[in-house]
Structure formats: structure tokens, C-alpha cells
Design a protein around this nucleic acid. Sequence first.
DNA 1: CGTTTTTGACCCGCGC
DNA 2: GCGCGGGTCAAAAACG
Length: 341
Amino acid sequence: MVATSVTIDLNLNPLSTTDHDNPVDDDIVLDLNKKSKENKKLKELLTFVWDNYNSLQTDVKKLLQEKEELESSPKKRKFDDTVQQSSWKMPKEDLRSSGIKRVYVKIDPSDKSLVVKDGYQWRKYGQKVTRDNPSPRAYYRCSFAPGCPVKKKVQRSVEDDGVVIATYEGEHNHRSTMQEAAYALGDDHEVSTNRRSNNSPKLDEVLVEQMAKYLCKDPSFTSELAAAIFAKISEVDFLKSNKHTIILMQPSQNRASRTFMDYESISQAMDGICALYERKLKDLNPAMRNITYDIQDLYNFIDGLADLSALVYDHSIQAYLPNDREWIRSRMFHHLKKLAH
DNA sequence: CGTTTTTGACCCGCGC
DNA sequence: GCGCGGGTCAAAAACG
Ligand SMILES: [Zn+2]
């Protein structure tokens, strides 16, 4: 509640310089208020999804380990030979009780980066080729907080290019980014965490147990679950990575010409500006069939506006940060460069 | 300039 | 002791 109004004040002040009787300003205030509420709702949803995902993932890990145990009894010793050494090493029976967790993640096979987006920040400290897997194994340490002992290994699966196996070791020293965001929310924070720790885990456990009984008979058990996890990750990542962007502009000297538009992401905002310029070009030369322009023309258009700025939502501080014309020009350059490959 | 990635050197346990 | 498979260090390079 408090955070909402603070956010709006902070963002609006640099731009709505004087009068409050301007209808456009009122529109902006209304819209910002609406967006703020939407953002808050999204935040709650995201936190919920994220918590849910974490809990589900924990259970899935257990199940996958159980599955390995079942499969490895006849002859499939593949996993035992390859995976464990030094601090990672541990007889499989103890694996569950220790802090070692293995996660299967379905991922785009063409993606070479091997980045598993899990809400933490990792510093790579090694890479090794391994005996019976053509793809290398990468070693990461958590760099989110100083002294955090958590490590993870990531390697593409031998049998499926679209799956990476991540092995985590240790407990984090700190909250994850999602939990931090929930905490920054303040007043609702306790509600959501309490609701979570009181009812849901039990429910999840029952659900997962039933699911396991059913799915264990399915041969594609692993990939099904991996796909489910991947879907969750994609969902979270989608909500997280797009920075809501509001473009404020005043085309002419007339203050009444002030207007704004909002976009789901920075790059969409850049596209929006391009579209605006293209529309203006078309209005100016209706005869011309297809129009062409280069980045300098676009710069001239941007500079020709009486006023232009962008508000970009920063997820980590829960607020819109103002950006000036120069920033827009630079982002536009990057954007066009990316489009040109 | 601070941070992360890269990459060969190094180290360590294990089987021989 | 030696070699092999794996894990880590750290210096240099790359990134942003
Ligand atoms: Zn950590």
C-alpha cells in the first residue's frame, strides 16, 4: 500500500512539472495507478508461482532419485560411475539426506549457453570434459551473497540434447531474488508466506505423491516432469525478464500534444517508436509505396520531438526509473543492431 | 573499472 | 608411485 503511492510519486515528479488540471496528466496518474496495482498483483502471482515451483522442484528431485535407484539395480550403473567425486561424492543411499539435489531441465537443444534460470546468480569457476558424455560439464558457485557456499554442476544429458542436468550442493546463505521481492512488498509478505507454509506444502506433497504413483508407470516419466518444470521456468522467466516500459512524449511545443504509450518490454517500446516514426513518414508522403529510413533519420525524429522520456520498470527496486532522450537513442541503436544481427 | 568467463595448471582420491 | 577421472584455482581475457 505504502509502496504503491511512493512509487508513483517518485516517478511522476520529474515529469509533471506544474499544473494538475491537465487532463493528460490525470490520465497518466490514473494509468500509473492502474499499472501499479497490476504490477503488485503480478508480483504476488509471481511469488506464488515461484514458491510453488521451488517446492515442486524439491519433490521432483526426490522422485527422480528414487527412479534412478529403481532403474540402476539391474544393470544401469551409468550414473554411478560418472557423477560423483570429492565433496559431491556420496553413496547414493545418502544422497537424499545430504544437501545434494539433481534437477532435470528441458531446454532448447540449439541453445548453447546451458544457462538454467533458477533465480540465483552464479559465477562459473570451471569446465571439464567428462568420460562418457560429449558435452562438457560446467561448475558454478553462487555469487549472489558473499560467502554463499552453494555450488552447482550443469551438463547436457547424454541421451537427450534437449535436457540439461543440474546438480546442486549446499544451502543458500540468503534469500533468492524472488523471496527478496516478496519481502520488499512489505505488508502482504507475511500473509503469503504464512499461507504457504501452513497449508500448501502438505497439499503439494499429497498431490505429488499421487502424481508419482500414476506417472511412474509412464515410460516418458522423466521428460514429462522435465517439461513441466521447464514450463514453470519459462513462465517465471517471462514475467521476470520483460521490463514494463512507458514512453512519454510531447511531439510539438503545445503541451496538449503530450501523450504516452506503454509496452511490455524495452524492445517492444523501441519497436513502438519505430512504428510511430514510420506512421509519420507515411502521413507525410502518402504516395510512397514503401518507405525506408536509416538510424540517423530516426535520431532526427527523436531529437525533433519537444520532449521525450521513458519510464522503465526495475524489478529489483519495485519502481519505474526515468530515462532521458540520450538513453532512448542508445537503446534504439542496440535494438536496431540486434534486429540486423 | 568491477565482475564474470575462459582455460590450463594443479590437486586429490582411487585402483593398480 | 603412476595414471586417470574429476573438482578447483587463478591469471588472463572478455564483458558490460
Ligand atoms: Zn546463494
